[in-house]
């Protein structure tokens, strides 16, 4: 007994691995990859390896970024295209949260509810949104509503599934604790079920935002007069490869920003997610 204690007490504190001296060069690999690709692109376009029509130089793309920002492309500036796309995606997000969270909660808490909604969700989930976009255009026309609806349909399944999983995992002890402290059914929902499921719901929203964003751009390729997808599509018709690449870059950067935004929101609003 005392021997064990002595060994523990005599042991010198180990240096934590992270404190090893020197710089961690491996962290620079992603940056090096990006630089290598840009350099390759640069040489390929300026040395005439590839025709400028197919691959304009990075500088040409930057220049067209400036042009599109200042004087616009296809009747709208870059900012207007971007805002049109963002407006659709966040409109659809709001709509799908309002619908999907209650449906997810119903699926988790009632067998009848699960029977009703599960087949619909399971059918919708693997369906590529572009497959049903034409149908929606036939039904609802080519206006804004159709695009928002398609995006919302793409976003709803991940939120429904995540909400259902979150609600199902609510700790029985915590529910009982709240009930024995006097909680009514409504209070249980508001003060225990919702906060327990929230981390899972936020994860669902993160996935939904990714799915919605890619659906949006695809939907705009088909039917829009403004938006990043439309901008790419109409530039392609005139072989405006610089604007096409610009559009792709903006879409990619926005997707990364979404991810960072969601992570920040997660840290800020559900710090208990890792302690449930």
């Amino acid at each position: 007994m005392s021997t064990t204690n002595d060994i523990v007490l005599d042991r010198k504190p180990e240096a934590p691995a992270a404190a090893a001296p020197g710089f961690d060069w491996v962290r620079l690999v992603p940056l090096a990859t990006v630089i290598a690709i840009l350099t390759l692109w640069w040489f390929a376009s300026t040395r005439g390896w590839v025709s400028r029509v197919f691959l304009p130089s990075p500088l040409a793309v930057l220049n067209s970024a400036y042009q599109v920002t200042v004087s616009g492309f296809a009747d709208s500036t870059l900012l207007q295209h971007l805002l049109a796309s963002l407006g659709r995606v966040f409109g659809a997000l709001a709509a799908s949260i309002v619908v999907a969270v209650p449906i997810g909660a119903i699926i988790a808490s009632s067998r009848i509810g699960r029977g009703i909604f599960d087949p619909v969700v399971e059918f919708l989930r693997p369906l590529p949104p572009l497959a049903y976009l034409p149908l929606i255009i036939i039904w609802f026309g080519i206006g804004e509503a159709s695009k928002v609806l398609v995006i919302a349909l793409a976003m709803a399944p991940p939120i429904i599934i995540a909400t259902a999983a979150g609600v199902r995992s609510v700790s029985r002890d915590r529910l009982n604790a709240a009930r024995s402290l006097g909680a009514t059914r409504l209070q249980l929902l508001r003060f225990v079920v919702l906060p327990s499921a929230l981390p899972s719901i936020v994860t669902g929203i993160r996935i939904a935002l990714g799915a919605g964003w890619s659906t949006l751009v695809a939907a705009e390729l088909v039917a829009a007069s403004r938006g990043l997808g439309f901008m790419i599509q109409s530039a392609a018709t005139f072989l405006g490869t610089d604007v096409v690449i610009l559009g792709i870059a903006v879409i990619g950067i926005v997707a990364i920003l979404f991810e960072l935004l969601m992570r920040a929101l997660e840290k800020r609003f559900v710090p208990w997610s890792t302690h449930l």
Binding site: D173, R174, N176, A177, S180, L181, P195, L276
Partner: peptide, 30 residues
């Protein structure tokens, strides 16, 4: 269950989305 019979659980069953203070005040808030 009812607040006249309050329960202390083996694995505490505290609410991690609330601070210690808010956990203690839960019944009063309800």
């Amino acid at each position: 269950p009812s607040a006249e019979r309050a329960v202390v659980f083996q694995d505490d069953a505290l609410f991690p989305w609330l601070t210690a203070r808010q956990n203690v005040g839960f019944a009063l808030k309800l």
